[in-house]
Design a binder for these strands. Structure first.
Lengths: 239, 239
DNA sequence: CGTCGGGTTGAGTCCATTCAACTTCGGTGG
DNA sequence: CCACCGAAGTTGAATGGACTCAACCCGACG
């Protein structure tokens, strides 16, 4: 079922009913990945693109010294490597952070459909452009937010995106990440990541135990983060 | 003249001759901006998109505390806000770092042309996707490169991009930026930016005086930066 | 000549890193 | 049942990176 994708797209643009069937027809492949597996490997030349149906995934780059940086974080409904349709070669890998179920669209079909359907093409194009807006926000977070604010902004973004695909319960959501993985989002060492988490917990804006986050004071969290959800280009009300 | 744009696009994909005339027809507006002016202001809803013909520009975001972060850097030939065609509202501004001459494409025309020409559409889409790849590289630089390496990587990227549009002379190029502006690329204070520049100068890989950079040892600079130009998706040989 | 924007340097403080140790918890095998 | 192990989280101490505040230099320009 592609429900998550439909929710994702409908929250970002007007999805015409006829287009949902085009998408369903296009996304006819299915695959499962175990935690820790690569959905897509760096340097490969994929012949298909991937929609995440279930689980969490992240784009990453490895440095010469062995350190790792996540450059994007993906939740169900995300078209995780639609950009691969337009590029020759993957300049980064995509990792399953939890067990993942995905749908696959062959690039030949993707080409046929985008050649014939300009409106759907713009919807997909728009999706890659919003992806870019999220990356810009990450640049801002890394460059000019304090580390506690960066973590808060990351949680705000994640909560907002998860809410769109109905993966929140009230102000609670699952975040099955280790602190070492979080450190690769914020560009920190694991030790310091731990201290940053501690400080944010002490702020009273969240409760965070056992891989579950409860936002107890949304406006305080937004304030710490200097968060403005407009970059997510979501239609309708915010989180 | 749109030569810079043609060079830019031809370096990234196969530009069919008929498409150059479509682009020329579409980009019928012209404007000039003085240094320090906004090409596009944050929060606006532009009805056209902008190709930089001459000068340097940067996308930026301002934080609550007044600090600034550049999220992208633009050289002649860049379609600086093509993504605005697909988004409602600018989540960031675009600043002229030097006097800028630009060409404008009305979004109505852009829509007509992209509705009718799937190949050109994919070329433009691809351009926004490569933009995203550059942003990912900035995330990696901010997160996991040392500051000297980040500066080196920025210079490698810039040199490579300027070379495409014939704005280098041998291993030399103009970089009319203040250190304060550079600091807003690297996410540093101006004082520390100055020290980072000093260290890179001492490495012997570059000469940098009077807003002109000469790369005296390209392989050393690449080594310091851990630079791999593949993310730029350029066809043919590198810098 | 004075001023101003940009560059440079020093000193002190705070942030983030490394290295190291210790805890908790779930799983595994004796 | 318990001893052991490994993964994840937590904490301390010392080092080095990055910040602020402050001062000073220099060349362009009025």
């Amino acid at each position: 079922m592609l429900d998550a994708l439909y929710l994702h797209l409908a929250a970002r643009g007007n999805l015409i009913p006829a287009e949902t069937s085009l998408l369903a027809e296009m996304l006819d492949g299915r695959r499962q990945f175990r935690k820790g597996e690569d959905l897509v490997t760096e340097g490969s030349r994929p012949t298909f693109s991937t929609v995440l149906l279930d689980g969490l995934a992240a784009r990453y780059r490895l440095m010469e010294d062995g350190s790792r940086q996540f450059t994007a974080f993906h939740v169900p409904g995300d078209f995780v490597d639609l950009h691969a349709f337009l590029l020759e070669r993957m300049d980064h890998g995509i990792l399953a952070l939890t067990p993942c179920r995905v749908a696959l669209a062959d690039h030949v079909k993707l080409k046929q459909i985008t050649d014939a359907h300009p409106h759907l093409t713009k919807l997909l194009w728009r999706d890659t452009v919003i992806d870019g807006a999220i990356q810009r926000e990450w640049i801002v977070s890394l460059g000019r937010r304090g580390k506690v604010a960066h973590l808060a902004a990351f949680l705000c973004e994640l909560f907002t995106r998860l809410k769109v695909v109905h993966l929140t319960e009230g102000m609670k959501f699952r975040l099955p990440l280790t602190q070492a993985e979080l450190a690769d989002v914020l560009g920190l060492s694991t030790v310091h990541m731990n201290r940053v988490v501690k400080i944010l917990r002490q702020s009273g804006a969240i409760l965070w135990t056992d891989h579950t986050v409860i936002i107890t004071d949304w406006s305080k969290l937004v304030d710490i983060a200097d968060f403005d959800p407009s970059y997510l280009s979501l239609i309708g009300k915010r989180g």
